[in-house]
């Protein structure tokens, strides 16, 4: 079987999905099942002290079936991200973290300088760090050198659904990377996920594309199939692109010639 391996841990699925923005926990659970994903991301937030009535997210997630990847979404400094990662480790069951250090509110683009700093700190503390970064091959290499267990460049801004904006950069990152390449963010529909995989990504991480679809459960299945199709196509070795036609049927033996 063709498995995803990150930091020595094996996953049968190359699709990683989020837990945010679902209309209900029941829809989320069904979408997760349909996606076939084994790794799911969660956010770390303050408990609402005044209103204890809300159900816990973990009431709806079978942690024997899904591997939880806590994120540091919403953190704007290396210090905040490191604190959040440490809390996520205590709240969860592992030392893995999807590291985000945001640098700009409107684009949610990462602050790569702070990201590198937080990566170094957390790697030194024994974390398995999966950093969300821009699609910059140099930054990806720096993150790798800092000890990141994977690099997770964006395809487009978080939640934008624009699809892969810089195909060439992802190709270069694929060529450079010695750790798994996960395209994280920007996917809008199945063909975007397939393209990411055709470019050689080891996995795709998405949230809004599934949770925000009119039918999240069906879209989750579409994404599962797209990731598998894209992976198979990448492994199969596509034909070269040519300007002109090449006949598929024999040119000899035509009637009347």
């Amino acid at each position: 079987m063709d498995h995803l391996v990150i930091a020595g841990k094996t996953f049968a699925s190359r699709l990683i999905v989020g837990t945010g923005k679902y209309s209900s926990p029941a829809v989320m659970v069904k979408a997760h099942e349909a996606s076939g994903a084994e790794m799911i991301t969660v956010a770390v937030r303050r408990v609402n002290i005044s209103d204890r009535s809300k159900e816990s997210l973990l009431d709806h997630i079978d942690t024997s079936k899904y591997f939880l990847l806590p994120n540091t979404a919403g953190c704007y400094t290396a210090d905040e991200a490191v604190r959040t990662a440490r809390l996520g480790r205590e709240a969860g069951l592992s030392n893995w973290v999807k590291l985000e250090v945001i640098g700009d509110e409107r684009t949610l683009f990462p602050d790569n300088v702070a990201l590198l700093e937080a990566t170094r700190t957390l790697v030194a503390e024994g974390f398995i760090v999966l950093p969300y970064t821009t699609d910059d091959p140099v930054v990806c290499r720096q993150l790798e050198d800092a000890g990141a267990a994977a690099v997770m460049p964006l395809g487009a801004p978080i939640g934008s659904g624009l699809g892969i904006q810089n195909v060439n950069n992802l190709r270069i990152i694929r060529e450079f990377a010695r750790v798994p390449l996960v395209v994280d963010a920007g996917v809008g529909t199945a063909s975007d996920a397939a393209l990411a995989m055709e470019l050689g990504a080891d996995a795709v991480l998405m949230n809004t594309a599934i949770a925000g679809a009119q039918d999240p459960v069906a879209m989750a299945e579409a994404m599962k199939l797209a990731v598998r199709a894209g992976r198979l196509a990448y492994q199969s070795g596509r034909i070269p692109r040519k300007m002109y036609a090449t006949a598929s049927s024999p040119i000899e033996g035509l009637v009347g010639r």
Binding site: G18, T19, G20, K21, Y22, M28, T41, V42, A43, V44, R45, R46, V47, I49, S56, L57, L58, L68, P70, N71, A73, T84, L87, G88, E90, A91, G92, I158, G159, A185, L205, M206, N207, T208, A211
Partner: peptide, 26 residues
């Protein structure tokens, strides 16, 4: 704090406490 130290850790005047949990996110 490690979970195992919740019983033995004392909170005093002026302390800052953060209590967090997992919520939906991407």
């Amino acid at each position: 704090l490690k979970r195992a130290s919740f019983d033995s850790t004392h909170i005093r005047e002026g302390d800052q406490i953060e209590i967090v949990n997992f919520v939906g996110g991407g």
